[in-house]
Design a protein around this nucleic acid. Structure first.
Lengths: 239, 239
DNA sequence: CTGACCATCCCCCTTTTGTGGGATACCGGC
DNA sequence: GCCGGTATCCCACAAAAGGGGGATGGTCAG
């Protein structure tokens, strides 16, 4: 059902309803902003208590939130109470968690939202201290969390590529091969050897690929193809 | 239950059992690349038909799996039949999917396995063509996939603590600025104007950034910084 | 105060890309 | 049979990037 939501408001409603149904007090669906990176178009949607949200904002806890740190080293969700098993917690972290407990954020479950090349994020579900997380709740949270994060990405147009509506460039296989090897750092001459064609042919393919994307640099071509899924980091970085 | 497995063999057993229980013919749990440790350290666990695995291995050079590309631009799992909704497929991609169908790999569901700056991979569940994926199967696959991938990461001991300090290149602010503008397609001269410094300074920053990443091309630098989260597409593509 | 790191600037020279033209051949659809 | 798209190849010239040397001043920790 989360897959079907068409607006941010609707997502808020569905998530709130989900929390009610499965016995969570709060949820928070956010992209983690790194202060170093400056202002971004990161999204944030939650129904945490006002007081906690304010406190969190003013103290810029986002940069050192242990939950965020943990979600950066995990693929699946985790209970907050078990974070110590895979990241070290500082004194400040414990202090922060204690503060949260006092304000009604006790135990929780966080699902990492990690897509290569994008700002990292997560979807958390939290309860007052003393409300244990039942296995069904955890499973539901894992499913809803990953799905909701994906919806949020699309709603906020993290990658502005509505390529189906607009005419997104599509490369021919040969063009794609050339761009792939270019993205792996090969020069035209090397690509020519690899694909067993002339250097001029490679040049030509890349030139035409550039035209399709409306760019005049191969590095832009590489980035655009990575951004729209024509290439993937997997293709490029594997060797 | 997957969380509790303690060995690779056990994981294989549990996954096979999972497939039997929920009606999947095959699974494939693979790490496509390991950003930190470089080539040769990826894990792979599957029970695909021998013939397909062999074919895949021998032809994998230069060819790219659309499923892997798709898993690179998603946070949650997806049905293969709906890939066209978020990545473009080339003629070669369709051909490859057709070949798979002939060899008993029809419809499937793939859960991305991405941990920033570390591993990119996925966990797929596949069926013969004509076996529709029921909603329960999809939910089960989503849960099992993300969890299994996390277990696999830990079993293969991909990560030890504090890898960031050891292995990941870190750029200075100025270096990052230069790489950012370079990734936006600017030349050294333009970047110099934008940052109000000499062209030589820009050159120097980018050169030193290249050194840190051990690459010899700015385009590689751009891609690596995108892959490890130093830059994000949001930074690069917004205007 | 010394050494490490950072940011800034300069030189010369080679290689690689980008841009502007071409050309031939195959293949599939109308 | 023609047209559009694809893949292949060719040339010449200008612009950009890469590789090798340097230099200066500033900051900050040991």
């Amino acid at each position: 059902m989360i897959e079907a939501v068409g607006s941010v408001d609707e997502l808020m409603l569905v998530m709130t309803e989900f929390c009610r149904t499965f016995g969570f007090d709060h949820f928070a669906l956010t992209q983690h902003i790194d202060i170093v990176r400056g202002p971004g178009s990161a999204f944030s949607l939650h129904n945490y208590p006002e007081s906690w949200a304010e406190f969190y904002e003013t103290n810029a806890l986002g940069v050192s939130d242990p939950v965020h740190r943990a979600s950066n080293v995990r693929n699946d969700g985790f209970r907050w109470s078990r974070m110590t098993e895979f990241i070290p917690l500082t004194a400040g972290d414990h202090q922060m968690l204690e503060l949260g407990r006092e304000q009604g954020i006790g135990e929780g479950y966080t699902v990492p939202g990690n897509v290569p090349g994008e700002v990292l994020g997560s979807c958390s579900f939290a309860n007052r201290a003393g409300h244990p997380l039942e296995p069904e709740m955890v499973m539901a949270a894992q499913l809803a969390g990953s799905c909701a994060f994906e919806r949020a990405r699309r709603l906020w147009r993290v990658r502005q590529v509505d390529w189906r509506e607009e005419k997104m460039p599509v490369l021919t296989d040969r063009q794609r091969d050339c761009v792939l090897w270019a993205a792996r750092g090969k020069g035209n001459w090397e690509i020519a050897k690899i694909l067993d064609v002339s250097q001029e042919t490679v040049r030509s393919h890349i030139r035409q690929a550039c035209e399709r994307y409306g760019v005049h640099k191969r590095s832009l071509l590489e980035i655009r193809t990575l951004a729209d899924g024509t290439l993937s980091f997997i293709d490029v970085l594997r060797r």
